[in-house]
Write a protein that binds this DNA or RNA. Structure first.
Lengths: 346, 346
DNA sequence: GAAATTCGTGGGAGCGCTTCCACGAGCCCT
DNA sequence: AGGGCTCGTGGAAGCGCTCCCACGAATTTC
C-alpha cells in the first residue's frame, strides 16, 4: 500500500526526488542529474525538471545525500577553550570572519562549535566522528587538549589554527609568532630603549611561548641578558594585560619599553601605564601583537605586529580542503610571515 | 559480489551496525535496540553487543539515523548581523554560553551559524531547510531580516532571541527591555537628577527601540518633557558609546545623569565623561544595561540593569524543544523581568 | 493441560538520495 | 549500408539505520 504513494503522493512532508520526477515526467536519476548539475542531461529535460523543482519548492534532503556520498559539505570551526570570554577576543572574531569569507565562494557551510571542558570536547568528537562534518579547523588549544588526538585517530580531516604545543604531527597554519615577536623587540631596542620588557600570553599556549621566545632571542642577540624581572604573564585579555603591566612596573620600575603579546593586553597595559603616570611612548614605548581594531582606536594608537589573517584563513581552508579530497601530504603545514605596523606607541 | 561483504567485511571504512551484529552474533535490530537503549533486550545480548561495539569502536552513522528518524539532535544558534564585531559583545557571548549550558544536559548539539548578508542568510536558510538541524534560535535581528520569514515558512522550528521588530507572530524570548529602562531612568530621577539623558542603541533593533521607550515613559511619568537634546544614538559598542556621549555632552552640557542602553557603550561613555572632566557619579550619574562583566571592572563600577540570562536561555531551549516535539502553542513567547543592580556609578 | 499472554528476537521494508549499468536512438566513418 | 560511436535516459542496487511485524519459546491463567 505504500507503493502507490509514489504514483499519487499527496505531498506528505517535504517533496522528494520522486515527486519531482513524476511531475517532470522523467526518472529519479535524471532529476538527480539536474540537481547535481551533471552535463549529461538534455536541455528539455533540464527545463522540465527545473520547473517541477520550482513548483514543488523542492529542497534535496542532505541526510539522504550524505548517506551515499559520504560528504556533508560542512566544516566545523572548533573553539576549544575553557574560558568563555575568548569570544570577545578580536583575534578569534577575525578568524571566524576570515574562514567564513574564504568559504563564501564555495558550497561549504561553516559551523562553530565550542568546547569548554573535557565533556564538551567528547561531545564534539562524537559529533565529528558521526559524520556531521567533512573536516575540522581547531582553534586555541592549550597544552593538553584531547581533540587533536581523538580527531586524528578517528580519521577526521583536521587543521589546527596555531602550531601544536608538542611537536605532534598534525597539519596546522600559524603566524610566525616568534619572528614577529623578535622584530617587535628589535624595533624597541633599535629605538634606543635599554630596558625592554615583555608581557607574554599564557605559557600553556604555543602562541604565548613563541612570542616570549622571540623576545628572548632578540634580547640575547642584542647582547643583553633576558632579565626575569622584565617578564610578566598575561592571559590575552585586556584586564589581564592591565594587571600584568602593573606587576611589571613593580618588578622593574626602570623599564622604558615593553613588547605586549596581544593588542587587547596592550590596551590594558596602556591603561596601567597611564595610571602609573608614564607617558607612551616618551617614557615607555609599547608594541602590541595582532593589529586588532583596538590598536587603531587606542590612545596612543598602537605600534603592533600584524598577522596576515586573510592569508592564514585562506590557507586554513585550502589545506583542509586538500585533506578532505584526499590529496594532501601528511601533516602539511604553513607558517605565515608577520609584519610590523608602526603607529604612535613606539 | 558486494553481497558477501556483509558476511566477511574486512573493515572497509568505519564499522557498521551489521558488522557489530555479526561479531555479537545477533541481528541488526538487536544492536539497534542496544544502541538506542531500548529495554526489550536480554542482558546477555546487551553485554555481547556492548562488547562488540567496544571492540569495533563502533559509532552510529548519524546521517543514516536521521534519514529515518527525521531528527538530527542538533540545533542552530544563528547570529544574523552584518557587523562582525558583534562577536565581541559580551551579551552575545553570554547567550552562547547560556544556551550551550542549557543544552549540556541533553544529547543535543549546538552549532553556531553567522549570517553577515542576505547571501549568507540564504545559505543558512538552505542549511536549515535541508534538515541539518531540528530547530533554530535566531539572534540580534535588525528590522528587515529575511530569516524569520523563510524559516517559518519552511516549517523549521524557530525561537527568536529578542522580540521581533514588527509584531509578527513568531515565538520569542526577550528581557523586559522597556521595563528595565524605565526602572533605570526612574532610579536616576529618584536620585534627584533633573536632566536625565539617554544613550540608546540602534533604532532598527527592537532592544534599542524598547530601551528608548522606557526612558521616554519614565521621563513623561515624572512630568518632564522628553527633550530631544537629551537623546543620542549609539550602536551598542564601546567606541560608539564614547562618541555618542561626546555628542550628548555637546547637545546638552547641563545633563546630570544618563541612562546608557548597554554596558559596553556605558564604558565608552564613562571614558568620554572623564575626558570632558565630569566626575561620575558626582557630576553625572550613569546607569548601564546588561550587567556585563565590564560593569564590574569599570571605573567606577556601573549601576546597571541585569537581564536574567540564565532564565532566558533556559526558556529559549525549552520553547524550542516544545516546538520540535510538536507540543507548542503557536508563537508561544516569554518576556523576562529585569533587575536594577546598584553599584557606584549612580 | 490447553489457551492466552508476554518477551526477546530476526526478517524485511523502507527513509531519499546517488550512481553503475544497460539500453535504444541518433550520429559518423570507411 | 553496416559496425562502430557518443548521448541521454531509466532501472535498480545500495548507503546505514530504524521500526513494524511476525515468530517461537517461556511464562502465566482458568
Amino acid at each position: 500500500m505504500t507503493t502507490d504513494l509514489t504514483t499519487s503522493a499527496p505531498a506528505t512532508g517535504p517533496p522528494t526526488l520522486d515527486e519531482v520526477a513524476l511531475l517532470a515526467g522523467v526518472s529519479r536519476a535524471t532529476v538527480s542529474r539536474v540537481v547535481n548539475e551533471s552535463p549529461k542531461v538534455s536541455p528539455e529535460a533540464r527545463v522540465a525538471v527545473q520547473a517541477a523543482i520550482a513548483q514543488l519548492r523542492y529542497v534535496p534532503n542532505r541526510m539522504a545525500r550524505s548517506l551515499v556520498t559520504r560528504r556533508t559539505d560542512t566544516i566545523a570551526l572548533v573553539l576549544s577553550e575553557p574560558n568563555s570570554q575568548v569570544f570577545s577576543d578580536p583575534f578569534f572574531a577575525s578568524i571566524v570572519h576570515g574562514v567564513s569569507a574564504a568559504l563564501a565562494e564555495t558550497e561549504l557551510t561553516l559551523v562553530l562549535l565550542t568546547a569548554r571542558d573535557a565533556r564538551e570536547q567528547q561531545k564534539i568528537a562524537r559529533y565529528a566522528r558521526q559524520g556531521h562534518v567533512d573536516g575540522v579547523v581547531l582553534m586555541s588549544l592549550h597544552s593538553e587538549d584531547l581533540l587533536p588526538d581523538i580527531l586524528t585517530e578517528a580519521g577526521v580531516p583536521l587543521v589546527l589554527c596555531g602550531r601544536p604545543y608538542d611537536g605532534r604531527s598534525v597539519a596546522y597554519v600559524d603566524a610566525d609568532n616568534q619572528g614577529g615577536a623578535r622584530v617587535a623587540t628589535e624595533h624597541l631596542i633599535g629605538l634606543g630603549r635599554s630596558r625592554v620588557a615583555v608581557l607574554t600570553g599564557p605559557m600553556d599556549m604555543i602562541a604565548g611561548v613563541d612570542r616570549h621566545a622571540g623576545w628572548v632571542a632578540a634580547t640575547t642577540d642584542a647582547g643583553r641578558r633576558p632579565d626575569p624581572a622584565l617578564v610578566a604573564h598575561g592571559d590575552f585579555t585586556e584586564a589581564g594585560g592591565e594587571a600584568a603591566m602593573a606587576r611589571l612596573l613593580d618588578q622593574a620600575p626602570d623599564l622604558d619599553a615593553v613588547f605586549v603579546a596581544s593588542d587587547p593586553m596592550a590596551v590594558g597595559a596602556l591603561r596601567a601605564l597611564r595610571a602609573a603616570g608614564r607617558r607612551v611612548p616618551e617614557d615607555v614605548a609599547v608594541v602590541g601583537f595582532d593589529d586588532a581594531d583596538v590598536a587603531l582606536t587606542s590612545d596612543p594608537p598602537l605600534t603592533t605586529v600584524a598577522q596576515p589573517l586573510d592569508v592564514m584563513t585562506t590557507e586554513l581552508v585550502e589545506l583542509l580542503g586538500r585533506q578532505i579530497d584526499g590529496r594532501a601530504e601528511p601533516a602539511e603545514s604553513r607558517t605565515c610571515p608577520t609584519r610590523l605596523v608602526r603607529r604612535a606607541s613606539a
